[in-house]
Amino acid sequence: MTLWKHYHTPSTLDEALALLASYDGRARIVAGGTDLLLDIRHGHVPPQEALIDVTCIDGLNTMRLDGDTLLIGAGVTHSQIVGSDTLASRATCLVESCGVVGGPQVRNVGTLGGNVAHALPAGDGTTSLVALDAEVEVVHQGERRWLPIGELFLGPGVSLLDPTRDILVQFRVRLCGPREATAFKRIMRPQGVALPILGCAAWLRLDEAGERCEDARVCIGPVAKVPARATAVEEALRGAPVDEAAIERAVGAAHESLSPRTSKYRATAEYRQEMADVLLRRVLPLAAERARTGQAVPEGVGME
């Protein structure tokens, strides 16, 4: 089966947009293609007249430090992210989540932009970007603008972007400063599709004494149709010392506020609820420890 007829590798954004316009809906944006090409092959997406590869566009395949902010091109591969020392120490959860996507061959090609554009409620990279409160720059309906990452998702597998017209350009992530840190972990099963049963990313900021949690952002997924912050969990953490009691309050808040569902051949709702507890008990102390010590070494990269 011919999955696509023409393959373009434009070197500028304008060129890519012009190509999309010229195909008028019969071409799609592709980055690594590790999801899209399989979707076409398996009939979930129709064969395309053309694919417009964005990974050669200047600026889309690189990362750029701007003060305490890192700009990550949408065509940056998972491997580039995993290999970034800046991200490893200052946005550790992103390295931890991108480091467990697929195997090395897929991470070498698959991009963070593609992962996010796929809009899966359990996208590993997405979970961490939400906890990092990332922003995303898009060209949407002909207009180039920045959005909070949460606004990108409309439903399972559905994003704001029309892949035949729009382009995801880059991400903006504020890196962790002193007393701030992140962590990500997920639960997998050894059978069936390699999608996480549950993933959890957390960002914490401690007070000057390194005891109380000044601020927290937590994302647990999939628990809803779109990736979202676990605000009740965050609330349970804010202002309290990050100790066992606080973590158990966070676990309690997760129990009350999150209602994970049973998904076929992946997990029962009951198991997911248990795993939310387990993940919070693993992720929160790790993030707190990193914030306290200022030391962060990504865990679990390349495994599960």
Partner: peptide, 25 residues
Amino acid sequence: EAECGICTVLVNGVPVDSCIYPAFK
């Protein structure tokens, strides 16, 4: 399906699954 990895070749020294890697990439 980019799953089994046995089609792995090196593109500029980097291992990729050649079964879903567009040649023109």
